[in-house]
Design a protein around this nucleic acid. Structure first.
Lengths: 384, 384
DNA sequence: GCGGACGCTGAATCGGCTC
DNA sequence: AGAGCCGATTCAGCGTCCG
């Protein structure tokens, strides 16, 4: 299909323009007025890191809806047809998703939130046009509205879809920050968060400004998990600007689209009051992947683990001699093994792979310690 | 679209045959062999009350996955989960959904379970052909498989869609039984249940018979919520027969479709061992007036205290039968008492009030334990 | 017999860089 | 572009075995 572009093609096209060039063209910190699809069309290709979208849920869309060709959908009839309505909603959804995909960088990610009324339409279409679902997330509301008539289950959750540009596309996931946030357990796909109420809920003369204002805690988790400081977040259905407020607080840049004056005004006021967190607050836990790489040889060279000494696995089943260049030598019944701490560990266990840093131990006085402890010491001693 | 029939048309067509006529034509308690769509075609129109479907998820897994300790994950690589494309999967999905819709009575309901790999396809298609979504339900797993590589959120839930035949169609919802089961709070759209493991998991020579066996507690809640005694439940992807086993226990009739001999054999054996709960256990709370004040249902659902079993006071002066929704029934010289554990305890003693949790005991092996002990166990197993 | 250590496993779209 | 290498990464539940 013509709308689908491979990750490779996108990467090549993106490479023609430098990131600095593109960033300079972006209306950072602005809310684009007018129709969302038209507004998206004004933005350059491959230019934002994250799209967060909270599209309309209602399938009886009234005058809010234009087909991709610009014609207006007449959905307001007494006998409006369910199937016509799905068709119109699908066209609208496909149009904004295609624009979002164009604007998003090849290694950017899309978030969409919805309920059972629309999320199956949205999910199927985003898969159709080439997005690759990474997770779906359930926002479990601590305080949902009850089902007053007792006719169904209390609708106590909404669904978010997180998707990359394609199956092979890269994406940002701050694993360590999420694990830290969740009490040292992996963050799960179900998030328990209260709905937006109290002081956080924007009100004008006692009535809520926007009917579906999302809680900041939800955006906080989304942005902390899948963006970095300085990233650009685009929200095509900006409303009263929850995305912008949280982005500003977390040191991310933002762009919004919103056609209603009332919402835009409220959002600008709200975001102006928001203060970015300072440097130290924004520093999050980094995974080992992001730590500077240290060769085992450097640890040996530094003397933390001595050449000629023996290292061994936790149960002392295997012993190996450390050589001057950081390679290992190990006598086995089947012959002599030699190689890296990883390779020898792998071969000894007959495993598909091995992290030598945690597999091997060395003797330090009375204690045995994983060689990873020596790497830690090395990093501390050689910090910039 | 040709495949769509209005609720009115369906009702008129159904009226030509009496319910007794249709029921006599049904292969109750049988697992139909062969292709699911062909098998469904052999069933008459408008004849079953509920369809529960656990279709292939179309996982599209890449290479092997190893745990951090090097062991290999036993993934779902069965041939029945392989499809060439979204298009092929969609065609398959539409075909079985259309047949399910034809077989289902006009006031029947459909349940489908899936993950993010397939549920958006399924949800959009069932809307397209005229089903009307009543709720989506999130099964939050207490013990999901972790994300070993630290690349995404732990995939800790699956999604169920519950749909009627159309926007105006009637459907069965046992509101009172659900509220009783949930400690006198409305049952929510997120259900916290463990995955199928331990003795419940069917094994042959130490290996699991089916890679994706669902927990009985999940089917228990589905059938208790949306079917009545004597209803016919059809499962087009029967597997090892969880739907049939729970249907039999709850006094519902069932029909299955399954093309794998191994699964059919295991299912027949399993269901043969299952005993239906007796009359009193199956009588659930119907009206508000008879409503028990307390929540004992979740303990019953979890299997810690079995529906149909007897509980008794410390001195074994009184005995009561536990019903499927957590209410009690007790024969006395003065007549039959029914209600919550608290209400029945109170009436038996002629006391102004009674804490049923400490009044009632259940037999656990050789020991008798207060039902509060089972509540403790339940809390421990379901801590948030 | 009991408590703790250890082992196994579950619907999973589960790397990234260099050469 | 594919192969090779480096090395990061897991939670709850249940069963078994050992002291």
């Amino acid at each position: 299909m013509g709308v689908i572009e491979t990750t490779k093609q996108r990467t090549e096209r993106a490479a023609k323009v430098t990131p600095q060039d593109v960033r300079a063209l972006l209306p950072l910190g602005q809310i684009l007025d007018g129709d969302c699809i038209e507004a998206l069309r004004s933005l350059p290709d491959n230019s934002v890191d994250c799209v967060f979208a909270d599209p309309p849920y209602n399938l009886q869309l009234g005058g809010d809806l234009n087909r991709p060709d610009g014609s207006e959908v007449d959905a307001v009839t007494d006998h409006w047809d369910q199937f016509d309505s799905f068709k119109a909603y699908d066209e609208f959804t496909k149009a904004w998703l295609i624009e979002a995909r164009r604007v998003l960088k090849p290694d950017g990610a899309l978030w969409v939130i919805g309920s059972y009324h629309n999320i199956y339409r949205v999910g199927a279409i985003l898969q159709d046009i080439g997005f690759w679902i990474l997770n779906d997330i359930v926002w479990r509301k601590t305080n949902p509205m009850p089902n007053f008539k007792g006719t169904r289950f209390t609708n106590a959750h909404e669904t978010l879809i997180w998707a990359s540009q394609g199956e092979k596309a890269r994406y940002q996931f701050n694993y360590r920050a999420m694990k830290t946030l969740n009490d040292e357990l992996q963050m799960r796909s179900d998030w328990v968060l209260p709905i937006c109420s109290g002081n956080e809920r924007l009100k004008e003369n006692g009535t809520k400004v926007h009917p579906t204002q999302k809680p900041e805690s939800l955006l906080y988790r989304v942005l902390l998990a899948t963006t970095e400081r300085g990233d650009v977040v685009l929200d095509p259905f900006f409303g009263t600007g929850t995305t912008g407020a949280v982005a500003k607080r977390l040191g991310r840049d933002w762009i919004g689209c919103e056609r209603e004056d009332v919402y835009r005004d409220a959002a600008y006021k709200r975001i102006a009051k928001e203060l970015p967190l300072d440097e130290s607050a924004l520093t999050t836990m980094q995974s080992k992947r992001a730590a500077p790489r240290v060769a085992f040889g450097a640890v040996v060279e530094s003397g933390l683990i001595k050449p000629g000494s023996q290292i061994f696995d936790k149960k002392r089943r295997w012993f190996a001699t450390v050589r001057a260049d950081g390679s290992l030598e190990c006598e086995t019944p089947k012959g002599k093994l030699q190689g890296s701490i990883h390779g020898v560990g792998k071969d000894l266990q007959g495993a598909p792979s091995c992290n030598g840093w945690t597999f091997w131990y060395y003797q330090d006085g009375d204690e045995m310690k994983p060689v990873d402890a020596a790497r830690e010491l090395y990093r501390l001693a050689n910090e910039d």
